[in-house]
Structure formats: structure tokens, C-alpha cells
Amino acid sequence: MSSSLLASLSRLSLLQTRQIHQTIPAGSSVFMKRQKKIDPEVAKQRETRRRKRLEKDIRQMQKHSKKPKPVDELTLDVKSAKNIGERRRPRTELTLEQIDERAIALKDYTRSRLALQQEDDAWIRGAIESQRKALNELKMLKLELYEAAVQPAAKDLPLIVQGPSLTPPIRNYEAPDGDYIDTTRNWAS
């Protein structure tokens, strides 16, 4: 009794269903393209050629995998390093006043940056608070408008701003003709 129940359960199991969904053997399909018979000699040649190409690729990869992409700032410029003695400047002796001036300038500058940061910070906090108030007012006036206002404005992004330059752009400036040459170096991957 129990064994027959087990047997019927096993028929319901995953294994059974998997066996039902078997693919048809590829070779026997009518729609499959029949493989051309090729000369065993040619096949052998092709095989060796493929093998050689693969080996070459592997060798290339091994060669480059040992060498990491160089960091220009860390590499030694051999040509310039040869006469490094000539390149050293004579030591400058600073007077006490000069040392003081530098220290004071640095402190003043740091203070000015701190003040600037505090100003920015106050502005950001104030702006956020102001916006919160405005949104609250809007919520009380009209809920639909509030709902629309708090939606993210995905269209505005990405925002690209061209910073101020030192001189204003020249009106009606015609750029000289020329080809664009990309000198970016490529590293084998």
C-alpha cells in the first residue's frame, strides 16, 4: 500500500516532469542543416591554426597581465633623471620676515575658506528650510500642486554648467580650420 503511494508520488516529482520535457536529439531533426563532409586533412590544418592563434592570444595576455598600466606620476623619466644634479636649484634662504609672511598668509587664507564654507552652509540650510515652508504652504493650498512639486525633475539632469572664464567669450569668433587628432594612449586589455 505504502509502496504504491510512494511510487505514485515519485511520478509527480520534479525528476519525472524533467524527463518529459526532453529535447529532441539535434541530429535527427528535419530542420537541421546537414553537416558537410570535409577532408580530414583540411580539418586537421584548421584545428592547428586555431590552436596556434589561441596560444598567441594567451601569450599576449600573459605578457600584458604582468605589466600593470603605468601611472605617469610614478614612473621615472630616465632621460631627465640623468642630469638631475644640474636641475637642482640653489637653496633659497628665507629671512624671518618671509617665513612669518608665509605663515600669516596661510592662516589668513584658511580663515577665509572657513568663512566661505560657513556662508555656503548657512545658505544651504536656509534654502532647504525656505523650500520646506513653501511646500507646506502649497500642501495646504492645493494638494495636486504639492504632489506635482515634490516629483523628481529627472529632465533637468544631467546639469552641465560652464564655469566663468577669465575673459569673456569673443563674439563671432571663427575657430581656425584643422583636424582633430586624438592622442590618447591605448593599453592592451
Binding site: 523650500q131 515652508k133 504652504e137 512639486a149 525633475a153 533637468d156 546639469l159
Partner: peptide
């Protein structure tokens, strides 16, 4: 001109 954001930054009554 580009308006920045959907939300107003301030309100005046």
C-alpha cells in the same frame, strides 16, 4: 532658460 527643479524654493504671502 532652464528652471531648476519642480519645487519652489520660497513663498511670499
Amino acid at each position: 532658460a532652464d528652471i531648476s527643479g519642480n519645487a519652489p524654493f520660497g513663498v511670499f504671502t
